[in-house]
Design a protein around this nucleic acid. Structure first.
Lengths: 206, 206, 206, 206
DNA sequence: TATGAATGAGGCTTCATTCAT
DNA sequence: AATGAATGAAGCCTCATTCAT
C-alpha cells in the first residue's frame, strides 16, 4: 500500500507543516497572538491562504500546537529527584534546572510565547497554560514536601513556596529572553547555580 | 460662577465616570482585554454607547487609565528603606510588602488585569507595563546593592536576584488572586512574613 | 399683552438667534456642511448644545436658513430691465451686476457657502439651490429673449447662453472669493464692467 | 510562471475591480459622496463587504480613483494650440471642445460627480479638484495670453477671462447633464460651436 | 431660557475562515 | 495539494438629536 510515492508525499506534507509552524512561531513571538494575523504567518511562510488551512484548522489550533509541543518538551526534561541515587539531590535538581534552561534558551521564540504572549489570549488557552504551570508547580511542591519530610527543608508551606520558586525562575528567564540575551554554556551553568542557590537558601533548613 | 449646581453636576459626572471604570474593571478582569467588547462594558455599566465615549476616548484609553492609576497607586506605597530610621530595615521592608499586598488583595480585579490580562494587549501597553515592573525592579535592585555594600547581603548579582525576588512574589500573588482567595488580615500578615522570609534567606549573608 | 418685558425677551431671543446664525455661517463657510459638526457651531457661538435646538430645529434647518435668506437677498437686487426707462439697458444691467457683486463681496462666508459648500449636501438642498439658480437663469433668459426680439442681440439659444453667462460670472467670483480677495469700490466697478463687457460681446448683434 | 491560469486570474480580478468601480460610479453620481454608504455600493455591485476592501482601501480611495482617472482623461484630450499647424487655431480649439464634450457626455455619471458631487467632500478632495480646474484654467489663460500677444485677442485680463470662459462651459454642461440630456453627434457639434462662438466673441479683438 | 449629559442609529473597517478553480 | 478571491460576522467610533434639571 504505502509505496514510495505515498511515503514521499507524507514527508513533503510534514515538511510543509513544519515550515508553517516555524513561520508562525516567529510571528507569534514577535507580535503576540492578537497582533498576529493569518496574513502575517502566510507572509512569513510564503504560502497561500488556503494552504494554511490545509494543514491547520485555525489560528488557535496552530498557536495551541506550538504551545503544547513546547510545554510537553519542557515537562519531559523535569525528572523527579531520586533519593536513592548516587547523585546528590542538589545535583539532580541542578541537572533539572540546566535542562530546562537549555530548552528555554535554545527556543527563545517559544519561550517568549510561553512566558509573555500566551497570557490572556483566550479562556481556553489560559486554562491550558495554567494547567502546565500547575503541573510544574506540583512537581516542585512534591519535592518540597519530600524535603520537609526528610528534614532537609524547613517546615514551610509547600504550596506557597513552590510558587515563589517557580515565579522567581520564570521572571528571571523571561527578562533575559526579553532582552535577547543568549548566554553561552558557562553563563548558563552559572545562572543555573544562582537559581538553585537562591531557591535552596530560601527553603533549606539551616 | 461655580454655584451649587455646577458643583453637583461635576460630582455627578465624576460619579458616572467611576461607574464606567468600575464596570470596565470587572469586564477586563473577567474576560481579558481582547475578549472584552465595548458592548460588554456598556452592558455592565448599563449605559448607552455614546455615554461611554463621553467619558473615555476609546477602549484602549479606559484600559490604560485603569492600569495607570493602579500602577501609580502601587508605586506610591513602596518606600525606600531608610537605614537611619529607628525602625529596622526588615520591618520597613515588611511594611512595604504589607502595603502592596493590601492594595493587591483589595483590588483583585485590577490585580488580575495587571498580572494576567495586560500582557500582549498592545505594544504600547507592553512597554508601559514593562516600565512599571522595571521601576519596581530598580527599587529592589537598589535595596540589594545597599545591602551588599553594607555587608548585610551576600555578594550576589543584584540585577538577577531582583528579578528572582520580584517574580516569586508576583507569581504567588497571581495564584492566590486567580483562585479568588481573599485572605483576612492575619493571613495577609503571615503571607507577608513568608514572602520576606523566603526572599531574605535567599540573599542574606548568613 | 405685549408689555415691555415680552418685547425685550423677544429682542433677546432674536439676538441670540443671530449670534448662532453668525457663528454657523463662519463654520459652514470654513469647513463645509459635512465637515462642520454641531459642536463646531456651539464652540463658535459659545453656547450650550440644548440652546442650539431651542432656536433651530436641526443642522439642516440652520444651513437652509442661511442659504435661503442669502438667495432671497440676492434675488431682491436683480431688477428686470425696464426698456422704457431713461437709463440705458446696459446701465441697468450694469447696476444689477454691481448690486450683486456688492452683496457677494460683503458676505464672503455666505458666498462661499452658496457657491462651493452647498452642493451635494443633500438632495433637498440641491433641489433648492438648483431652483435658485434656475430663477436667476430665468431672469437672464428673459432678458436675452427680449434682447433678441428687439434685435439688439444675435439670434442665439437663450436657454443655453443664459447658462454661459451665469456660469462665467459664478466661476469668476467663486475664485476671487476663494482666494480671499476683497476688491475695493473701484476694483468692483471694473470687475462689473468686465463681466458685462465679456457677456455682452458674446451675445450682442454686432 | 505567468501561464494561462495566472493571466486569466488577473483578468478576472481586474474585471471585478471594474465592476465595483462601475457600481460606485453610479451610486456616487446618484446620491453624492456623503449620502452614499459602502452598503449602497455593495448592493449595486452585488458583492460582499469584504470583497470591496479586497480591491479598494476605503470609501475615499475609490471615490478618489474615479475622480482622478476622469480628470486625467480630460486633461489628456486638451491639446495646446499649435500656431504653426495647417489647421486654424479656431478649429484646433473647436476640436478641443469637442473632445471634452465627448468625454463628458459619454460619462454622465462621472461628469455629475466632477461637477456636482465632488465639492465639499473633504479638504483633500477640494484641493485636488481645485488643482484640476486650476490646471485647465492655466491652459486657457495661456491661450488667451498668446492670443493677446498675437494681437488676435483684445487686451483683457487673461486670469479673469479664463475663469469666465471656464465657468460658462462648466455651467452649461452641468445643466445639460443634470437634466439627463444626451445630445447626439449633430447636437454636440452645434453645442461645441456655440461654446466656442460665445467665448471667442467675448474676447476677440473685433 | 439655558445647560450638557445621555442616547443609539448609522457607518467604516478588519480579518478568520470558506470554497471554487 | 495549492491558490487566492470571496465572505460576513464582529467590533469600534461619531454625532445629530433628546431630555431631565
Amino acid at each position: 500500500m504505502t509505496d514510495g510515492r505515498v511515503t514521499r508525499a507524507r514527508a513533503l506534507r510534514e515538511e510543509r507543516r513544519q515550515q508553517i509552524l516555524y513561520a508562525a512561531r516567529g510571528v507569534f513571538a514577535h507580535r503576540g497572538y492578537h497582533a498576529s494575523s493569518i496574513a502575517d504567518i502566510l507572509g512569513a511562510a510564503n504560502i497561500a491562504r488556503g494552504t494554511f488551512y490545509l494543514h491547520f484548522e485555525s489560528k488557535k489550533t496552530i498557536f495551541s500546537e506550538l504551545l503544547d509541543s513546547f510545554t510537553d518538551r519542557l515537562s519531559g526534561v523535569v525528572h523527579r529527584v531520586d533519593l536513592t541515587s548516587d547523585v546528590s539531590a542538589r545535583n539532580q535538581l541542578l541537572a533539572n534546572v540546566q535542562r530546562i534552561l537549555a530548552i528555554l534558551f535554545d527556543n527563545q521564540d517559544l519561550t517568549t510565547i510561553l512566558l509573555r504572549e500566551a497570557v490572556g489570549v483566550d479562556t481556553e488557552f489560559d486554562t491550558k497554560i495554567a494547567e502546565f504551570w500547575g503541573h510544574v508547580h506540583l512537581l516542585v511542591k512534591r519535592s518540597l514536601k519530600t524535603g520537609i519530610e526528610l528534614g532537609i527543608l524547613r517546615s514551610i508551606d509547600p504550596e506557597l513556596y513552590a510558587w515563589f520558586v517557580l515565579g522567581g525562575i520564570k521572571e528571571a528567564i523571561a527578562q533575559l529572553v526579553a532582552r535577547g540575551e543568549t548566554p553561552d554554556a558557562e553563563q548558563r551553568r552559572r545562572l543555573a547555580e544562582n537559581v538553585l542557590d537562591y531557591t535552596l537558601r530560601g527553603i533549606l533548613r539551616t
